[in-house]
Nucleic acid binder design. Sequence first.
DNA 1: TTATAAATGTGTTAATATTACACAATTGTT
DNA 2: AACAATTGTGTAATATTAACACATTTATAA
Lengths: 228, 228
Amino acid sequence: MQYPSESRIMLAIDCCIFGFDGENLKILLIKRNFEPEMGKWSLMGGFLKSTEDLEDGAKRILKDLTGLDNIYMEQLNSYGNINRDPVERTVSICFFALINIQEHDIEEAKSKNGYWFDFNKKPELIFDHDQMVEKALSQIRYKAALHPIGFELLPEKFTIPQLQKLYEAIYGTTLDRRNFSRKILSTKLLIDTGEKNENSSTKKAALFKLDQAKYESQFNAFHYFVNL
Amino acid sequence: MQYPSESRIMLAIDCCIFGFDGENLKILLIKRNFEPEMGKWSLMGGFLKSTEDLEDGAKRILKDLTGLDNIYMEQLNSYGNINRDPVERTVSICFFALINIQEHDIEEAKSKNGYWFDFNKKPELIFDHDQMVEKALSQIRYKAALHPIGFELLPEKFTIPQLQKLYEAIYGTTLDRRNFSRKILSTKLLIDTGEKNENSSTKKAALFKLDQAKYESQFNAFHYFVNL
DNA sequence: TTATAAATGTGTTAATATTACACAATTGTT
DNA sequence: AACAATTGTGTAATATTAACACATTTATAA
């Protein structure tokens, strides 16, 4: 038994991949070496296979294009305007992913014309990918204000000033150092490793790591890291 | 030109439709009169046509099944587990809609076996529709705490106690009358119509309406109607 | 070796928001 | 006219946020 064939449609998966280099929010883009829109920049993407679940498809595409797995990933939204893809009617399900640049090489992505852009200096993208990126940023802003997703963008051990710079990059603003520190520590999600950040030419900041158990059990609690 | 045909897939649209009867949160379900799963309850749904955008498809399906248009509607999430539909691999894009029960008849839906259930007394649904409903409720809770979407479930003119009952139904909790009133009024989103709610056997509450202009301009601002 | 600049860590106070509660007013019913 | 139910508004205690100051650490330059 099958449904009437009125509506079988190409299903794409696109993925907004974010990183953080310590100063700026970064986004991983790929220069297309195939038609249509060859030579232009786009998000990482591919087609969903008929044998895989959505999340598996998204993971496969991320793995194929960047070599990475075990990455924070979340479904964002679907895009299906009739003419969004000039080749053929295609609906795209967009995901966003957060990766820790310092500890993950993306050789694989680079070999495929992948490149990290400063978020604020990214080129214009194909199709409706700019719309996807805008939505992804707004979702990250929304979520990072209330839930501890920011840590996904940092190395395993990080300092509070590094965390603050990340939040400042996400929200394009500056935060008060003292109030930020107090707020973050009050969540009790951080464990002081006792180590210091040696890459500093002034006072070396304390290195913290996530309390993994608390992180997982409280992920859906509300922390108000930043007031919206 | 076309893409290789590896992945053309049936695309369904399902819609969680919420209402409020003054006491309980309601959800509109439909008893299937076709296979598969004939006789069981499901969300309102249909297949996306190749000639329509996603949002247009969702609106069309809502209109076809309930006779309603101009309804608050938002894309929720997509579901694509391989075996979610026993007939054939189908990906469903789920929307949720909020409708004002008192002022909108759903004759059309009733004629198609549609029925309003108390949210807390709904039957088990087909496929992964229970998962969709759970996600929809959590999205409504999330959003209604921060943005003025609750008003979509109320008649044009409503009292503050009515609004409070709605919030209490959404969150399954009770709120302090005095604090709630103060918080709502502090948003300046409500205009006192000068009229009173005549359907009351005690003190008649003041009827308010939304300040439409402020509502639209501040929709994406944060109001913290309820603390999460 | 000492002074300096840059960055980190912590404390304090004022302003604001939230919570918890009490009393007066309205209206149909007894 | 008394009563019960519900609405409208005020106020004090508590908690949170925002604004700001000073002491400490460390590489570098004097």
